[in-house]
Amino acid sequence: TFTSYQLEELEKVFQKTHYPDVYAREQLAMRTDLTEARVQVWFQNRRA
């Protein structure tokens, strides 16, 4: 599960791009204290 802060950050990036590159995902992962893999999976699920 994600915190409301994490979801907010993820959604913010999703609004800009549905396909963030690895750099964007790593920045987001650091900001949200998630792994890059978790961020990647979240985007895959969000796009589905």
Rank of each mutant, 00 (worst) to 15 (best):
D21S: 11
F2E: 03
T35P: 07
A24V: 14
E8M: 13
D33C: 14
Y19R: 04
M30E: 10
Y23S: 11
R38D: 15
S4P: 14
Q15F: 06
L7T: 07
F14C: 01
R47I: 07
E36R: 05
T32H: 04
E36I: 11
Q44S: 09
A29F: 04
V13R: 02
T32Q: 02
F43K: 00
E9I: 06
M30Q: 11
R47C: 07
R31T: 10
T3F: 06
F14M: 01
V39D: 01
F14A: 02
F14T: 00
T32I: 15
S4H: 13
Q15V: 07
E8K: 09
S4A: 13
K16N: 09
L34D: 01
E9M: 09
F43L: 03
Q44I: 09
L7E: 08
K12A: 08
R47Y: 03
V13W: 07
Q15E: 10
Q15P: 00
R25P: 02
E26L: 15
W42C: 03
F14L: 02
Q27G: 05
T35W: 03
L28I: 07
D21H: 05
R38A: 15
R31L: 12
V41H: 14
F14S: 00
Y5D: 08
R25D: 01
K12T: 06
Y19E: 04
R25V: 15
A48N: 11
F14V: 01
M30C: 09
R47G: 03
A29C: 11
E8H: 08
K16I: 14
V13Q: 08
R46D: 01
E36T: 08
H18C: 11
F14G: 00
V41Y: 13
E8P: 15
Q15G: 07
R46G: 02
T3N: 08
L10G: 00
D33I: 05
V41R: 12
D21G: 08
L28M: 03
L7N: 11
R38H: 10
R47E: 03
W42H: 01
A24C: 15
Y5T: 07
N45Y: 10
L7R: 06
E26F: 10
Q44D: 10
S4K: 14
T3I: 06
R46A: 07
Q27I: 09
E11H: 03
E8F: 09
E11C: 05
L34T: 05
V13H: 06
Q15L: 12
E11W: 04
F43R: 00
L28A: 02
T3H: 06
T1Y: 13
H18F: 09
R25Q: 07
D21I: 03
T3P: 02
T17P: 00
Y23P: 06
A24P: 15
W42R: 00
M30Y: 12
V41D: 15
F43Q: 00
D21E: 15
Q6D: 02
E9R: 03
L34M: 08
L34N: 02
L28E: 00
H18Q: 14
K16S: 09
L34A: 03
T17L: 05
P20W: 02
A29H: 02
E36K: 06
E26S: 09
V22R: 15
A24H: 07
E8W: 08
R47D: 02
H18G: 05
Q6T: 03
V22L: 14
R38Q: 15
L10D: 00
Q40L: 14
F2R: 01
L10M: 14
R47K: 03
